[in-house]
């Protein structure tokens, strides 16, 4: 920040504008105007371009509130988001702790990279890879039946647990990353001080480590919860017929049913939910930065 004020000058905007304008113009045309247009369309009976007559209406929102289906699905998606986030905390936090406090030097660097790497690879492909593992007669099925003396039938494919597994696999690196960053910043001497003053491991964890790493946990939770609530590809592939969620219904409005105004209203409601969640998380996040 100090560097910025050093080069500060009057009329900064005039000089900055030519450099910034193209980037922000692009974001306006491709992100901000579309989001505004979506809000606008959500109050229409039909698309003005389709040639059919259209009018302003609250009907799309009325549909959301009058048909319990949409609300049920939104709640199902929120529950899915919550469950996936919890699993990511349970699985990711201990791993982040080991990375930050147990492993050192090159092995830490290498393992950290290995954890983060799949996160940046294609999400669709990773979900597909779980289909290979979970389907009946798939690897999990075959492996377990080869090891176990009795015959069992693992048919996780096209079920709610399959969706959870796939999503946790997709998002757990996020949790490891954010928690690792905050855990690493905790001074080891604080932990040693707590221990030498007679606190048990569990007490140090509860009173020192978890509170200090809270920003990482919240950041990870927000970064996972938000996209999971809006997910549709993962439930479609791994959930089959049980994979109907709020996101898949929005997808349907745009690619199958072609009720775009209703889809826009549903999208906008989701956006409102997302913004509320980010607003709740932001005080903790701001403290972290």
């Amino acid at each position: 920040m100090a560097a910025q004020s050093a080069t500060a000058s009057r009329g900064g905007l005039r000089k900055a504008l030519p450099l910034m304008a193209p980037a922000y113009l692009w974001l306006t045309v491709a992100i901000f105007l579309p989001l505004s247009a979506m809000v606008f369309f959500s109050f229409m009976t039909d698309l003005p371009l389709s040639g059919k007559p259209w009018a302003f209406t609250l009907g799309n929102y009325a549909a959301f509130f009058s048909q319990s289906l949409y609300l049920t699905l939104l709640l199902a998606s929120l529950r899915l988001g919550l469950e996936v986030t919890l699993w990511c905390v349970v699985i990711g936090y201990p791993a982040a702790y080991v990375l930050a406090k147990v492993l050192k030097g090159r092995s830490r660097e290498a393992i950290f990279l290995l954890v983060i790497l799949p996160f940046w690879s294609n999400g669709l492909v990773r979900i597909f890879s779980w289909a290979m593992v979970l389907r009946e007669g798939g690897i999990l099925d075959t492996a377990l039946n080869a090891v176990l003396p009795f015959k069992i039938n693992i048919d996780l494919m096209y079920s709610y647990p399959a969706v959870i597994i796939g999503l946790v696999h997709s998002y757990v690196p996020y949790m490891v990353l954010t928690c690792y960053l905050t855990l690493q910043a905790i001074d080891d001497s604080l932990i040693e001080a707590g221990r030498s003053l007679g606190a048990s491991r569990l007490q140090v964890l509860k009173r020192v480590i978890i509170p200090l790493s809270m920003p990482g946990l919240v950041a990870g939770a927000a970064l996972i919860f938000v996209p999971v609530v809006g997910s549709f590809m993962e439930p479609r592939i791994l959930g089959g017929r049980t994979g109907t969620f709020y996101g898949t219904v929005i997808e349907d409005q745009f690619v199958a049913v072609f009720n775009w105004p209703l889809g826009a209203a549903l999208s906008f409601i989701l956006l409102a939910v997302v913004l509320v969640i980010l607003a709740i998380a932001s005080p903790v996040l701001r403290r972290a930065t």
Binding site: L35, A37, G230, S231, S267, L270, V274
Partner: peptide, 8 residues
């Protein structure tokens, strides 16, 4: 979420 951005 990209679902919202994409549909918008």
């Amino acid at each position: 979420p990209w679902l919202i951005t994409g549909t918008a």
